[in-house]
Amino acid sequence: MNWLATLGASTLAMLRGWGHAALFFVDLLRVLPQSLRRFGLVVTQIHAIGNRSLLIILASGLAVGFVLALQMYYALVKYGAAESLGLVVNLSLVRELGPVVTALLFAGRAGTSLTAEIGLMKAGEQIAAMELMAIDPRARVLAPRFLGGIVSLPLLTGLFSAVGILGAWVVAVGLIGIDAGNFWSIQQNGVDVWRDLGNGVVKSAVFGVVCTAVALYQGYETEATPEGVAYATTRTVVISSLAVLGMDFILTALMFSTP
């Protein structure tokens, strides 16, 4: 019966872990208003998180736009529906690929960087030093980064989608020779701002909350050793990615179930 005891113990440990994480998240929300007053800190974080991710997001967006246009063209041309290429690419990007791919890239680039930074600050006793100076490290260090992530990800997603559509335009109109006017007008008729773009932005905001919170939690709770930090950054990427994909499924079902 030993395995039952182990199973019970690990289930309890897992529940405790989730509870700890949930309390951490609630605490983070509690200190958010304080960091809004120190907006300079938030700005610095938007720069570290958002601006520094621009290159990879723009490059990926362009590449995805190119490839999506090509692949969709090969599929659509069989049904004589090549004119709808712009529409198909747009909807794919704005509804799904934009929010999800940007979030995954974000988790990899900005998420790991946040985890490592916080983990190393903890290892170097900077967090303890702040506490002993009667300064709440959650308000001073964590909350600005949290806000920075929530602000950055929707903007990055918008850029990814826009660049992707432009990339598709280059391939569709420039390479394949689809009519430019049709390319844009079919999109304008078929893509609804609130339903498609709006929901995409909402998705990216949710992903921003999830990815940033996970990254901060892993960094804050990591062991102060090189292995601890390495393990924590891995967990950030894995947990963020799984959470993004899971939430995407739920959000898509909620938002796009009725046509």
Binding site: N90, V94, L155, G158, S161, A162, Q188, D196
Partner: peptide, 13 residues
């Protein structure tokens, strides 16, 4: 970021 969103909203939606 805002310009990108606006672009998608106007030109492509």
């Amino acid at each position: 970021g805002l310009v990108a969103l606006l672009f998608v909203a106007l030109k492509a939606a």
